[in-house]
């Protein structure tokens, strides 16, 4: 009996997965985004191997060297160097690591807390729900970046604190989403069935209901991933995120901002890196949404 259910659910899952991939791969742009993202992830993982220099190594005789193709540029510093003679390319490659990890951790933190609170709010109702939702409303009443900024001011500037602050501002959207899905699912037959079968609230919440709300959560997670990278960079730019000499992309722009006119490459390339990474994730996110959201599937 048990093995039979397991088998069925396995084949259902694999069936779902195949269907998903069918729709996802139909979008060339989504696949392109995914490939690019995989590339960036690999770059981040193997940053030590592929970057030509150490990110913090200061070549003091080679400060503010322009990129290789510009007059005065050198092949060994392909994207040029910054004020202290550090190789921009190496810094950007290593920065990918920080930005991706920051984005991922923000999503994991906000999603896990948000889903938990959302499930509880949707499942329990009553005053617990009211409190949770009012707290979330309060967080949402203050613009996200401002909220994060003040939180970081409290916690102290730094990458970790920036991630925590951003995660807090992202939590309400996960809570709302999970709560809404939970409330829809609660009235469905299969939930009633498990209830009758005597499933406890934990089992109901996590085993029965949660898997069925996954699709919108995955889409929301992907979108949050890209905005988390943007917001981490924005905090870095304002001097409240990762602290120099850490090569986080936003921090790179901030630390070189006074060279904006005399050495524009120190500002341009980190920005392009942010833009491309975020664009790739968003392309992938669009594909995911189309593949997972049955309503939009055929439109």
């Amino acid at each position: 009996m048990t093995s039979l259910t397991a088998k069925t659910s396995y084949s259902v899952r694999s069936q779902q997965w195949r269907e998903f991939w069918f729709y996802f791969s139909a979008s060339k742009t989504a696949v392109a985004g995914l490939c690019f993202l995989i590339g960036v992830v690999l770059m981040a993982i193997f940053a030590d191997v592929i970057s030509p220099h150490l990110p913090a190594e200061q070549y003091r005789d080679f400060t503010e060297i322009p990129p290789a193709w510009m007059e005065g540029g050198q092949m060994r510093f392909f994207l040029g160097t910054d004020y202290a003679g550090r190789d921009m390319l190496s810094r950007i490659i290593h920065g990918a690591r920080l930005s991706l990890i920051a984005g991922a951790i923000v999503v994991i933190m906000s999603a896990s807390i948000g889903v938990l609170l959302g499930l509880v709010a949707g499942f329990q109702g009553g005053w617990i729900e009211t409190i949770i939702m009012r707290v979330m409303d309060t967080i949402m009443a203050v613009p996200g970046l401002l909220m994060a900024l003040v939180l970081v001011a409290v916690l102290g500037p730094g990458l970790l604190n920036a991630m925590v602050a951003i995660a807090i501002t992202y939590t309400p959207s996960f809570v709302r989403l999970t709560r809404a899905s939970t409330m829809t699912e609660l009235n469905k037959d299969y939930v009633t069935a498990s209830k009758v079968a005597g499933a406890g609230p934990m089992r109901l919440m996590f085993i029965s209901i949660l898997p069925n709300c996954m699709a919108p959560l995955i889409v929301q997670g992907t979108l949050s991933f890209s905005t988390a990278i943007l917001d981490t960079a924005a905090l870095g730019f304002l001097g409240m995120g990762a602290q120099a000499p850490l090569p986080e992309w936003g921090t790179l722009i901030a630390e070189n901002r006074d060279l904006m006119l005399s050495a524009p490459w120190t500002v341009t390339f980190p920005g392009i890196a942010i833009l491309l990474a975020v664009l790739a994730i968003n392309l992938m996110g669009d594909g995911l949404r189309d593949a997972l959201d049955p309503k939009l599937k055929r439109s």
Partner: peptide, 25 residues
Amino acid sequence: ARRMAELIQADWAKVGVEAEIVTFE
């Protein structure tokens, strides 16, 4: 000051002194 500290940090590293850069509000 941050930039200055980074340079001093690198200079001191050459004489075997390991310095951490600290900043506060």
